[in-house]
Structures are given as C-alpha cells and as structure tokens.
C-alpha cells in the first residue's frame, strides 16, 4: 500500500525510522540535495497510510554513448515494511524512468560483496554481477557492480560480465 512520489526536503525530517537501520547510510545534506536538484525524477519515497515513510530510492543518470545509464545510489526500506516487495517497486520505477524518459542502456548499482541478502534480491530483479570492484568500500571491502539491461540495449551488450575484477580508479563514474 504505497503512494510513491518524488522525495522532498521535508521527507528528510521524517525518515529516521528508515535511516536508523545500520545498513542505511545517512549522508550529508549536500549529497541528498544534489540528487534532488540534479535528478529529481530518480529520487522517490514510498508512503504508507498515515503518512509514515516506508522507504526510498535515490539514483541518477549519467554516462556517454552506450554507457548512458541509470544508477541506483541507495534503496532502503524500514523494517516494518520489509518482505512486501517494496524495494522491487522502487527499483522498477527507477528502471522505468531510465528506460522510458532518459532512454538509458542499462541500470547499475554497487553492493557490498558480503551483503548476500541484497545481492540475492537484486538477482531476483534480474540484475547480474557485471564485475567485481576491488576494495571499493573504504578501501576495505570489495564491491559488486550489478547491471540490468534496458530496452535500448537490444543485444544486451552492457551486461556481458567482465572476466577480471577492476580497481576503483578504473571505474568510469564515482
């Protein structure tokens, strides 16, 4: 039961029950506001009856040529609203915007290699592990770059997995 709408500044004052979760990072203000200012269509919040915040997704669109793609920066759901496919709805929305409005080739995301539950979830949503990024998280933990091809990438070239891992400085985008 979800009203999904654009994320607004006032939501920052109401998302504690989502962000107190230890896996959800609370970024600095300029981070959130830059996303709102630059990619407002990629930052959505889901609201439950009574106005409680259930979760949100933030992302962006970037790249050039065939690497023009949507990127999921964060997706998170409050404990009370888990196990009801909300993350899936939010992800689908971002994929839709990337696909239909921005005509991107694929959507990608980074996930901690140890975060098995999340990796499993993304796999269920048809994301594949495109490559491993060595010591991506604070120079310690490896990250996995996962991708899902969109309709514009007819031959699904964007998701052919790389054979070797890469280092963070080889990444095209932050």
């Amino acid at each position: 039961m979800t009203t999904i709408r654009r994320f607004s500044c006032n939501d920052l004052l109401r998302f504690a029950s989502v962000n107190l979760d230890h896996l959800t990072e609370t970024f600095n203000m300029s981070f959130y506001m830059t996303y709102m200012a630059r990619w407002p269509d990629y930052f959505h919040v889901a609201e439950a009856p009574g106005g409680h915040i259930m979760g949100y997704i933030m992302g962006k669109v970037e790249g050039q040529g065939e690497s023009w793609h949507g990127h999921v920066t964060a997706v998170t759901v409050a404990p009370e609203y888990r196990r009801q496919q909300l993350a899936k709805k939010l992800m689908n929305l971002l994929e839709d915007v990337s696909d239909k409005i921005d005509k991107a080739y694929f959507v990608d995301l980074f996930v901690r290699a140890s975060n098995t539950p999340a990796i499993k979830m993304y796999e269920k949503l048809d994301y594949i592990i495109y490559r491993r990024v060595l010591r991506y998280y604070s120079g310690e933990e490896d990250g996995l770059d996962m991708r899902k091809a969109l309709s514009r990438d007819v031959e699904k070239k964007s998701i052919i997995p790389l054979k070797r891992p890469v280092t963070p400085d080889e990444l095209e985008y932050d």
């Binding site: 039961m1 439950a48 009856p49 009574g50 409680h52 259930m54 404990p79 009370e80 609203y81 888990r82 196990r83 009801q84």
Partner: peptide, 8 residues
C-alpha cells in the same frame, strides 16, 4: 502477518 498491518 505483515509487520505493518497494525499501523495500517
């Protein structure tokens, strides 16, 4: 069975 049922 959902955790949010009561608040719904």
């Amino acid at each position: 069975h959902l955790a949010c049922f009561a608040s719904d």
